[in-house]
């Protein structure tokens, strides 16, 4: 299991999620925008920094092949990255479950 971390940021979660299939760095912007219905628009500087960090952590790798001209590299999630994603999903489920449990119940009580 990769180094333990507590929670992913929204930015990192969406970048990892979009790289479950090989994707050009800049194509991530569009994909994340589509996934979030236009709510999350990644800055190019933010995305570039995030890709560097994720590579360093070994959560994504460069896909060797056809289009690896400068800046046109393709990336995909590694096994470690996949585990991180799954763990994050479980964490989010817990948040949603508890949020619904408490907020929706108390809302019902007041009525």
């Amino acid at each position: 299991m990769p180094n333990s971390i507590n929670a992913l940021t929204e930015t990192i979660f969406y970048i990892l999620l979009s790289m479950t299939e090989p994707l050009h760095g800049y194509a991530v912007v569009q994909k994340v925008k589509d996934l979030s219905d236009g709510r999350v628009v990644l800055g190019t500087g933010t995305l570039y920094g995030a890709i560097e960090n994720l590579m360093k952590k070994g959560w994504i790798i460069e896909v060797p092949g056809k289009n690896n001209v400068r800046g046109k590299k393709e990336y995909r999630v590694t096994e470690d990255g996949g585990q991180i994603l799954k763990r994050e999903l479980n964490r989010l489920r817990e948040l949603v479950k508890n949020g619904e449990l408490i907020l929706e119940n108390s809302g019902g009580n007041r009525k």
């Binding site: 050009h24 800046g71 046109k72």
Partner: peptide, 23 residues
Amino acid sequence: TEIVTLSGQKKKDYFGFSENAGV
């Protein structure tokens, strides 16, 4: 605008990356 603190190959990479993103 932005202060870019990268240098050398990394700077080229960043600018290439931005260019591909339509920037």
